[in-house]
Write a protein that binds this DNA or RNA. Structure first.
Lengths: 209, 209
DNA sequence: GGAAGCATGTAAGATGTTACATGATTAC
DNA sequence: GTAATCATGTAACATCTTACATGCTTCC
């Protein structure tokens, strides 16, 4: 068992644990389920299937269809089930990753001024709010399906995070310095900012959020 | 100007806008600043520098040191500054990406049972709480540096998100079905779950959170 | 005076995305 | 009867990570 499987591989096996599927169907299932917190593109699904097949964790069988293109339907093998369960039981998992471009922009917002920064925040906050609304709806819709307990928990995660993000945008928008000199404050402030960065702690052995 | 620059490239330029740096210094600066919301590994920093140099956005100059290895110090060129500002002003930016392995596990938690799921949630919640605490400290430390307004805002983001996540873990941990049959409930429940997935909305043209 | 760590970087490979291909079926 | 969309997938490329290399300097 050399070389541990990625979260992506395991996500694919997780979906196949529900039912055998073709690559195309799998990609669609990803879209409706894990993509919210673990996106996998369609070609990526196919290459994971190739990898998993070569490991003996899934098994494809050719199915001719009429009217539609032939397909290969993949089934999780017993070895695949074991690998999936081993992953579930493994305590040492990858940390979550958050990548948020607005924050990168914000770190150099002095280049464009507070007015522009407020525009970003409004737009970003509105998107978060819209997201929150959609997830709230989904969460409510799942409320009376007891079998959906775990799925609902994942929705609740997104719901709480988007709420926090919307709040953040609103709060920061209003706390930004009201007026700001725009006529080349860059150099001076940049140097201050740099000194600041030096003072920030390193995240060398960081534990994921 | 064919082929837009990635957020990563722009993040590198953003840091260079503070001061010229070698690849090594840059990688360290990344670690202390943007890595929290936009991680960039060291080799990635070097390859971005090569790319940016070939585009004329940064310029490297050889510096001999004594005691230490020689280095190349990179400076943002005027064209680089323009590219950075163009990116800042561009409204159509990449969406944020969240990748959260626990949620993948949670979607198939019926395979291991609620007891185990609660363990995951406790561990994940504790990590989030620890993160929150560290960020709170950092946020407080920045409170009386007016120049740090934007940096503080980025810290506040992480702070609010980790607080939301810790809350979520706690709440879900306590709302999970108290007892659960573990003796192969898989197949039956799996089919239910699959039907459920089919009912979930697709995220085809999703707007980032 | 050996081990650990710093400062500088590269090579190789894994992971992930954008764009394309193809034939049927449905929508208007 | 043409345009869009579905169902199936592949090719080419971009991004990012893990592991390695090298010589100094500091620590104990």
């Amino acid at each position: 068992m050399a070389g541990r499987l990625s979260t992506t591989s395991n996500a694919v096996m997780a979906l196949l644990s529900f039912a055998p599927m073709s690559g195309y169907q799998l990609a669609r299932a990803v879209d409706r389920s894990v993509s919210r917190f673990w996106p996998i593109s369609k070609p990526q699904v196919y290459s994971e299937l190739r990898r998993l097949e070569s490991l003996g964790f899934v098994e494809g069988s050719h199915v001719a269809q009429d009217g539609l293109p032939d397909k290969r339907v993949f089934t999780l093998t017993p070895a695949g089930e074991r690998a999936l369960d081993a992953w579930l039981q493994d305590d040492h998992l990858d940390a979550s990753r958050f990548r948020i471009p607005v924050l990168v922009k914000l770190l150099v917002a002095h280049r464009v001024g507070a007015h522009e920064a407020r525009r970003w925040l409004r737009a970003y906050g509105a998107a978060a709010e819209e997201q929150r609304r959609a997830l709230q709806e989904l969460h409510d819709a799942l409320a009376d399906t007891p079998d959906a307990a775990y799925a609902r928990a994942t929705v609740l995660y997104g719901l709480k995070v988007s709420r926090a993000v919307a709040e953040w945008a609103e709060e920061v928008e209003h706390s930004l310095p009201a007026a700001e000199i725009r006529i080349d404050p860059r150099r001076r402030r940049a140097e201050n900012a740099l000194r600041l960065l030096g003072a920030l702690p390193s995240r060398a052995g960081r534990s994921g959020r």
